[in-house]
């Protein structure tokens, strides 16, 4: 339970950090450490150097920028959960953040760290997918924008290159939409056995558009397009029916805590509940 030897670096600027990543092949980024440190202690990961982003200024912020809200990669979950800006402009992200792990995890873990770790049962992936967020990453060769829908490539893997660092996450303002994040907590780890993020727009008594994403069920968080299609243009009463498609076409995970069949069932229940909660909130 103690990691193999490693070097520790805590650069003060992003460019120093990028230089370290470029020069050390098996460097790992520390941005909260909830995934990295346990993996190192179990010796599932043995990086030669750990690059701590905690002392780089300018990565911890939440600000408005036109029709988007920009969240710095090193912003802890607790700040996202309590952000006044987000509560008004993008409550889905705050709701998801407020349900991550426990108090200690929320005070220490960061949005960039969570997204880069790409845990199959993490909460943020569902939220950023439903929000069509953009994830900004830099390397020595420049900055690029990665759409959330293309970001996650598999269990613990993403589009990020080893020499890239996430700098910020950009989410749209969702005023006018109905949103909710509902989650079935794993009793021990606090991860989502199933987590469902929804963002829907109503047009009168019908659903104009729906973005629904689900974490914990498959190898990666995914957009439940079958549910979205079943809702689009339909009256509000179809929710339960549409939710039945929650795990359609997904290879459902199975573990000792929840079988694939049970997870599939929970995906339907929590999709329905998330939709109901979103509509109820917006109906007030």
């Amino acid at each position: 339970m103690i990691p193999a030897n490693f070097d520790y670096e805590s650069p003060r600027t992003l460019s120093e950090a990028l230089d370290l990543l470029a020069s050390r092949q098996d460097a790992k980024i520390l941005a909260g450490g909830h995934s990295l440190l346990p993996a190192m202690k179990l010796r599932l990961a043995a990086p030669s150097v750990v690059v701590d982003l905690g002392r780089i200024a300018g990565l911890n912020h939440i600000r408005e920028s036109g029709d988007r809200i920009v969240i710095g990669a090193m912003t802890p979950h607790a700040d996202v959960a309590s952000s006044k800006i987000l509560h008004v402009a993008c409550p889905l992200l705050a709701q998801a953040a407020s349900q991550i792990g426990d108090v200690q995890v929320r005070n220490r873990g960061t949005i960039g760290g969570s997204l880069a770790a790409a845990h199959p049962a993490a909460d943020y992936p569902a939220a950023v997918l439903a929000l069509d967020a953009e994830i900004m990453a830099v390397s020595r060769s420049g900055e690029r924008s990665l759409p959330a829908t293309k970001f996650f490539t598999g269990m613990f893997t993403t589009e990020l290159r080893p020499d890239e660092i996430i700098t910020e996450v950009r989410v749209p303002r969702t005023e006018g939409a109905s949103v909710a994040y509902k989650k079935f907590h794993h009793p021990a780890s606090g991860y989502a056995v199933v987590g469902v993020a929804v963002r829907i727009k109503k047009a009168g008594t019908r659903i104009d558009s729906a973005a629904i994403s689900i974490t914990g069920v498959g190898h990666i968080a995914y957009r439940a397009t079958a549910v979205e299609n079943a809702l689009r243009g339909k009256p509000l009463g179809v929710i339960a029916e549409a939710a039945a498609h929650a795990a359609e076409g997904v290879e459902v995970l199975s573990d000792y805590y929840a079988s694939a069949e049970y997870r599939r069932h929970l995906a339907t229940v929590f999709t329905r509940r998330a939709l109901e909660q979103a509509l109820e909130a917006s109906g007030k």
């Binding site: 346990p38 009793p187 021990a188 780890s189 573990d255 000792y256």
Partner: peptide, 20 residues
């Protein structure tokens, strides 16, 4: 919620992140 889960003699939840 507490249950030690085994697979072929291997404990599947030997830690407090899995066993609550």
């Amino acid at each position: 919620q507490e249950e030690m889960v085994w697979k072929d003699g291997m404990l599947m939840n030997p830690g407090l992140l899995e066993y609550r």
